[in-house]
Simulated scan of single mutants.
Amino acid sequence: MPNRLQLTSTSTPAPPRLPAGALRVRGRIAEAMLAAHALAPEDAIEFAPDPRDGAEFAKLRAAGIVREVPGGRYWFDLVAYHLREQARSRVAVMWTLGLAVMIAAVAVLFYRG
């Protein structure tokens, strides 16, 4: 029989797969931070937002999503971002359900059988 090489894995296993949409972000600041891979304190970058994004940058810093490390460098906390988005989603769902119930109630009032 010919001598065949067998491939064996000696490296660490692949990281767990993230859920669909886990790395989706909205906004120019978030996209710029992700493009620069500034997702941890050791990967922080010097970042000066565009003047039209100054208010959004201040909001992200106040929410703890964009964090500063010594030296005036910033990084994007992806976990904090997704927690905020989940909270927003929960509020939007509650408003949507309430509106749907109101529309159904108005429809029932005008129903003539």
Rank of each mutant, 00 (worst) to 15 (best):
V108W: 14
P15I: 02
V93N: 08
A100K: 01
L18K: 07
D77P: 02
P70L: 10
F57P: 00
A48I: 14
V101S: 08
W75N: 02
R17S: 14
G54C: 03
T8E: 11
V106F: 12
L60E: 01
R88E: 14
V93S: 08
R73K: 15
V25E: 02
Y81D: 01
A80G: 07
R17L: 13
A20M: 05
L18N: 06
Y74H: 15
L5C: 09
P49M: 03
A92W: 05
A105E: 05
R28L: 09
A104V: 11
V101Y: 09
R73P: 04
L5Y: 12
L7A: 12
L34N: 01
L18V: 07
V93M: 11
Y111Q: 13
S89F: 10
E31A: 13
R73M: 11
V66H: 01
G113N: 10
R17Q: 13
D50V: 09
A22C: 02
H37W: 03
P41Q: 07
H82W: 04
A55G: 12
R4M: 11
A48F: 11
P16F: 03
M1N: 09
R112D: 10
L7S: 06
R52F: 09
A100H: 02
R112S: 10
A92Y: 06
L109E: 11
M94F: 09
R112M: 07
T10Y: 07
W95M: 12
A36M: 07
F76G: 02
E46G: 12
A63E: 13
H37E: 11
V66P: 00
M102T: 14
E68P: 00
T8G: 05
Q86A: 15
L34W: 00
E56C: 02
G113W: 13
L97Y: 04
M94L: 14
E31D: 11
D53W: 05
T8Q: 14
L7H: 06
P70Q: 13
L5N: 12
A58P: 00
L7N: 06
M33R: 01
E68F: 01
R26C: 03
R90S: 05
M102H: 06
V79T: 15
E31G: 06
T10M: 03
L39K: 05
G54P: 00
R84T: 06
L83R: 14
A104N: 04
S89N: 06
